[in-house]
Nucleic acid binder design. Structure first.
Lengths: 249, 249
DNA sequence: CGAGCCCTTGAAACTCGTCAATGATCGTGG
DNA sequence: CCACGATCATTGACGAGTTTCAAGGGCTCG
C-alpha cells in the first residue's frame, strides 16, 4: 500500500520517481490519536504541518452557545493545516472521528516541497479542490432539503473514498454518528434520524453499523442532483463497476 | 487611486516597486459589463484569467429546479477564475451584481506571476482566505437563525469593503436586492424581508436604497457571534473610528 | 448486570417557505 | 406631464419542514 498522500497527488498529475521518493521521506514524526479527540485547535499557530495517514477526521467550528458546524472531512492523504504556513493561525479546529494516525512535516520540508514545480502545482490543486467542495457544501446546505442533503454527502464520500482507495465497490466505512452527520448538514439529530429513515426507504442506499452501501448510485445521485464535476477527478482512471461518474451535460 | 488588485495583495505583504510595476502591466484587455449578466459560466474553460476591477459580482451555483445559491461575493481586486489555471474547468458561474469592469490577464502572465516568490505567496494567501470565508459561511448557514445570518454577512462585508477601500467609515454601498441576499443565505425572499425588518428594529444597522450603515458595529457583531479572525486581516493597519476588529479571546 | 452511548419515537412549538396580493419607486414613452 | 410597465419591497394567511423536549430501546463493554 503506497503512501496515501502520494496516491492523492497522483490523482492530479504523475510524479517522477524522484518526487515520489522525496515525498516518502518528509515525515518527521507520526503518532496515533484516539477517536473523538482534538488534533488541532482554533487559534493554534502550529509549527509542523499535520497530515492524516490513517483514519477519519473533521474540520469544525464552534459557536458561543456550543453548537458545532463540521466544515469538512479529512481522509488519509489530506493535510490538516497546510494553510497555517501562510495564514499563521488556525481559524477552525480539527478533531479525529475514528482512531487516526497523524504525521508531521516540518515547515522547512514544506518549503522544499514548494520549490518542486510538479509538487507545488499538485498542492495547489489540492487546495483548490477543497475550496470547490466547500462551495458545493454551501449549495447543499442552502438549497436542498434534509434527505437530499444527506444523499449528496453520501455520493460525495463514495467518490472521495474511492479516490483514496478506501471504498470497496459501492460500499465504504463511515465511522460517524448521526449527531456528527447532523452537525455536518446543519440539522438537528432527531431530524437527521428521520431523514435517514426516509432515505433508507428509497432503497438506493443502506446503512448498517457504520457501513454505507450504495445500492443504486445513479438513482441516488439523480434524486439529490449530485454531479461530480466539482471534485475535479477527471483524470481518475479507476472506475469500478457501477460507474458513478455522473456529469451534468 | 491605485490598482485595487495591488492594494489587495499588499494587505498580505509589502511588494517591491518592481513587483508593483509588473502587476500594473499585466492586464491584457479590460471591458465593462452591465449589471446582472453572466461573466463566466459553469463548464467554461477560460483562456484568460478574469479580474474584477470595479463593481460587484458573485459566484453562484444553480440546481436543476432553478434555485440558486450564491457562494461568494467578488469586489474590486478579486480574481474570478484563477483556479481554472489548475482545475481546467469552472465548477460554478459568475455574474455581475452591478455594472462592472473586468480585466483579463493571459495565462502566460499568470505563469510569470507564480515565478515571483512574493507575489506567488500573496496569491496563495488570497486563495486561502477565500477558503476560510467559505468555511465561515458554512457555519453561518448551518448554525445561525436568519437574522443573525444577515447580521454576520453585513459585518463581514464592512471589513472586506474597508480593506478594499470601498467603505466610508461604517457605511458602504451594497448593490444587492433582497432576492439576491436570500439566495446568498439560503432563505426565501419573504423571510429575508421579515428578517431584515427584525434587524432594523435592533437599531444596530440601517438600510436605505442599497446603502448600509452600521450604527453600532460592536453590538451587531456580538448579536450574531461575528469574529474577524477568519478574514486574516491581522496586518491591516487602517482602523477607522469605531474599531471593528473583534477577536474572540 | 448496569452504565454509557447511540439510535429511535411521539407530540408540541416554532422557524421558515409558499402563495397571492398590495405598495413604492423609477425610467420610459405617449 | 402623466400614465404605464417593470422591478423591488412589503404584507397576510396558511402550510410544510424542522426543532425541541422527553422518553424508551438496543447494543457494547467493563
Amino acid at each position: 500500500m503506497p503512501n496515501p498522500f502520494i496516491r492523492k497527488l497522483e490523482k492530479f498529475t504523475p510524479l517522477s520517481a524522484e518526487d515520489r521518493s522525496f515525498l516518502d521521506e518528509i515525515v518527521e514524526v507520526s503518532h496515533t490519536i484516539e477517536a473523538d479527540s482534538d488534533i488541532i485547535h482554533e487559534g493554534d499557530a502550529t509549527e509542523n504541518v499535520h497530515l492524516i495517514t490513517a483514519g477519519f477526521a473533521c474540520r469544525y467550528k464552534l459557536l458561543e452557545d456550543g453548537s458545532r458546524q463540521i466544515v469538512g472531512y479529512l481522509v488519509p492523504g489530506d493535510f490538516c493545516d497546510l494553510h497555517v504556513f501562510i495564514l499563521r493561525q488556525m481559524d477552525h479546529s480539527i478533531a479525529s472521528l475514528s482512531r487516526c494516525t497523524v504525521s508531521e512535516i516540518s515547515r522547512s520540508r514544506i518549503l522544499e516541497l514548494t520549490t518542486r514545480p510538479t509538487i507545488a502545482r499538485a498542492l495547489w490543486w489540492v487546495t483548490l479542490v477543497d475550496e470547490a467542495v466547500l462551495r458545493e457544501w454551501l449549495l447543499n446546505m442552502g438549497q436542498r432539503p434534509a434527505d437530499q442533503r444527506i444523499a449528496h454527502l453520501l455520493c460525495e464520500m463514495l467518490l472521495r473514498l474511492r479516490a483514496a482507495g478506501l471504498a470497496d465497490g459501492d460500499s465504504y466505512a463511515l465511522p460517524i454518528t448521526q449527531v456528527e452527520l447532523a452537525d455536518t448538514l446543519g440539522l438537528s439529530p432527531v431530524h437527521m434520524n428521520r431523514s435517514l429513515q426516509k432515505l433508507r426507504a428509497t432503497g438506493f442506499v443502506t446503512f448498517k453499523n457504520n457501513e454505507i452501501e450504495i445500492i443504486d448510485f445513479r438513482k441516488l445521485a439523480e434524486s439529490c442532483g449530485f454531479t461530480s464535476n466539482y471534485l475535479h477527478l477527471d483524470k481518475l482512471q479507476t472506475r469500478p463497476a457501477s460507474d458513478p461518474e455522473v456529469s451534468r451535460h
